[in-house]
């Protein structure tokens, strides 16, 4: 048994192709992006080593910090909205008829491409012919906002379709976790005289805390990576008011051809993502994950 299942040639044959692929496409580029960040490399001229010049520039680049701030802000919004998704999931997981249908309907936007969502919401936000402002005017709002061209609100306008897209995804995760709480535990609590509210908050919530922790990481790190939707909807504008880290990096690299500086931003993005993941794990680590 053991001899057959530890056949080295077979293991190599099964593992190496995929391992090689993620090395070439993911890990080597990650290292290289840090290295290219140390290059003076613009357009199609050959690159030249300049040490930490780009990283030094990055630290003093107010545009970079502004885009980082926007990314973090979206991350915080996304994390806060998790509580709403959790509340909805708790309602669905209680004795609601048609819960299965509801959660599937909520999921539909998650299946669409960010490009399609961005185009659709650009039309919804259209000042003259869009759905939203016509609705507002029907309710008597005189000068409805210019959702995507007002620098003061554009980030919030972008956040709405993000919620619209991801709500169903998180609801499905929470719903599955809540349904996984064993009947016996709930029953025991009920026998001890716990009300439905107490069962929900004191029994079910602590039990799904590990799942909640994972979703915080997903929401925060996911927000740091937001790109498609913003790139298509506003391109980071107007006047960088909706610029995020990934769109800033993409613009520097593939519109201005500042590959060296773009690499430095890309590396900073990686570091911030990993740091954030580590930080959340640290902050939410508990000595004992609750188990009954």
């Amino acid at each position: 048994m053991k001899a057959v299942m530890s056949n080295r040639a077979a293991i190599a044959m099964y593992v190496l192709p995929a391992l090689l692929l993620i090395m070439i496409i993911i890990y080597v580029p990650l290292v290289l992006t840090g290295y290219y960040g140390m290059m003076d490399w613009k357009g199609f001229a050959p690159m030249k080593f300049i040490g930490f010049g780009n990283y030094n520039k990055l630290i003093h680049d107010s545009m970079f910090w502004k885009s980082t701030y926007h990314s973090v802000l979206l991350g915080i919004f996304s994390t806060l909205s998790l509580f709403i998704y959790l509340a909805v999931s708790m309602v669905l997981a209680s004795r609601i008829k048609g819960a299965n249908l509801f959660r599937k309907i909520y999921l539909i936007p998650m299946l669409l491409s960010s490009v399609a969502i961005a185009q659709l919401w650009s039309k919804i936000y259209d000042p003259a012919n869009g759905m939203l402002n016509n609705l507002l005017m029907a309710f008597g709002v005189e000068n409805p906002p210019l959702w995507l061209s007002d620098p003061n609100i554009v980030l919030y306008s972008i956040f709405v379709p993000i919620v619209w897209q991801y709500a169903g995804f998180y609801i499905i995760i929470y719903y599955a976790a809540l349904k996984n709480v064993s009947e016996e535990v709930v029953e025991a609590a009920t026998i001890d005289g716990a009300t439905a509210w107490q069962v929900a908050t004191r029994v079910k919530l602590p039990l799904i805390a590990p799942v909640f922790k994972v979703t915080i990481i997903l929401a925060l790190v996911g927000s740091l990576k937001y790109f498609d939707l913003i790139f298509v909807m506003t391109g980071g504008g107007p006047n960088h008011a909706s610029e995020v880290m990934a769109s800033y990096m993409y613009g520097e690299a593939f519109s201005k051809y500042n590959f060296g500086y773009g690499s430095a931003i890309g590396f900073a993005l990686l570091v911030i993502c990993l740091l954030m993941t580590w930080l959340i794990r640290k902050l939410t680590a508990s000595n004992e994950d609750v188990q009954y």
């Binding site: 580029p29 990650l30 290219y36 990934a246 890309g266 993005l269 990686l270 993502c273």
Partner: peptide
Amino acid sequence: GLMIPLHSTLIPLFN
């Protein structure tokens, strides 16, 4: 790999 932002790989991959 799940945590890696693909944008950080984009320039080296393009190259």
